[in-house]
Nucleic acid binder design. Structure first.
Lengths: 211, 211
DNA sequence: ACCTGAACACCGTTCAAGT
DNA sequence: ACCTGAACACCGTTCAAGT
């Protein structure tokens, strides 16, 4: 993917470090990701990263932001692939989410573990908000088509996102175990859960809210 | 909470180490939890834990198992508190889940980050299964009362659990931000999401499943 | 402005040795 | 059987110094 360059000068070292970190993260996991290793792969001394990142956490934040961009892209793809089927857009965006987490457990771990919860990195917060916004777009498409119940988009988005995110996290954390999470197994499970979410748990639809 | 004892001999060191680890985890976070620190607090040398835990991961697994026991207890409490209201049992069990994650972010981080996903610790796997089982009991109570749609309990449980877990994780990971997550804010958000989950997203209930 | 090398305080883990 | 102390290879981070 990238050739070996002898040295990174000027200002591209920051990007080069993020680039170098991603395969290390995939191979060695989040605990195996080391500032010194990243620097070695990028071909600089182990103190050079400190010119571009305040500390290790700042590098991790930059990597996590890239992860959110992938989720955003997954929503955009689903929207484009099924232009007039907003329900399907939602389901496929959810499947893409599932696939992402299972395919890239290490970066998911980094993004969602809570280790970066205290971060106020503008880059990271904005990437996360953009991802949520791209799902809300899909919900809005459905709303325009009269697909969903009459609740604020944010509320519907939050519930749908919580469900798919929770399912993905449960798989990633090993709360639901399978010898191997093949694509078809993920699809089957995703279909069951999204069906139940869309239809609702209650047998009879009562008052809009009670207590 | 515990007096200082000069030395742990015999076989209670294992439990003492888990006990010692929990407040360290709460104070210093999962990255700040160090085998050497735990040993110091327990009053033994930093190599003593290796008599009782294969490595650091094994200690973390034992701590995570304790976390699952708390979730199980939360379900049991909700069941006991509202004996003839299975819907309320479900909602309150969900609230307890939310409170747990917000109150104890570090142990939640440990339990759900995926770092322990590869573990085949019998203790941990069983504690997690028990927790899921205790939620399924609550779903079964509702099924017996004719509350839910006619789907397998496991399917309903999975969807409900995914939703509450996902919401909790999104809060813990900072995907949903609030200056402070007070109990009433958590209740408001939990109510909105559980309402939507129970009622379903779709305006019209169509075929049970389509594609 | 950007990078290096030595240095510091800390890890997880192993191993010979003690009781 | 259970614990200790020294040792090893590794971290993140700081800082004076080089270009």
């Amino acid at each position: 993917m990238a050739g070996k360059k002898k040295s990174y000068h000027h200002k591209n070292l920051r990007d080069a470090l993020v680039e170098a970190a991603i395969p290390i993260l995939a191979d060695d996991g989040v605990d195996g990701l080391t500032l010194r290793k990243v620097a070695r792969v990028a071909g600089v001394s182990h103190t050079a990263p400190y010119r571009h990142f305040r500390d290790k956490a700042a590098l991790l934040e930059a990597i996590a932001a890239v992860g959110y961009q992938h989720l955003t892209a997954g929503c955009a793809d689903a929207e484009r692939a099924y232009p007039d089927e907003p329900r399907r857009q939602l389901v496929e965006a959810g499947m893409a989410y599932l696939f992402f987490v299972v395919d890239r457990p290490a970066i998911s771990h980094l993004m969602f573990s809570g280790a970066l919860a205290g971060s106020d990195s503008q880059e990271l917060v904005q990437a996360a908000e953009t991802a949520v916004g791209s799902l809300m777009r899909i919900i809005d498409n459905g709303k325009r088509a009269g697909l969903y119940i009459d609740r604020p988009s944010r509320q519907l988005t939050l519930t749908a996102l919580a469900t798919v995110h929770g399912l993905a996290m449960m798989i990633a954390a090993g709360m639901i175990r399978e010898p191997e999470w093949t694509r078809s197994k993920l699809r089957a499970l995703g279909t069951i859960v999204s069906d139940t979410l869309l239809t609702g748990l209650l047998r009879e639809r009562g008052e809009e809210r009670e207590q």
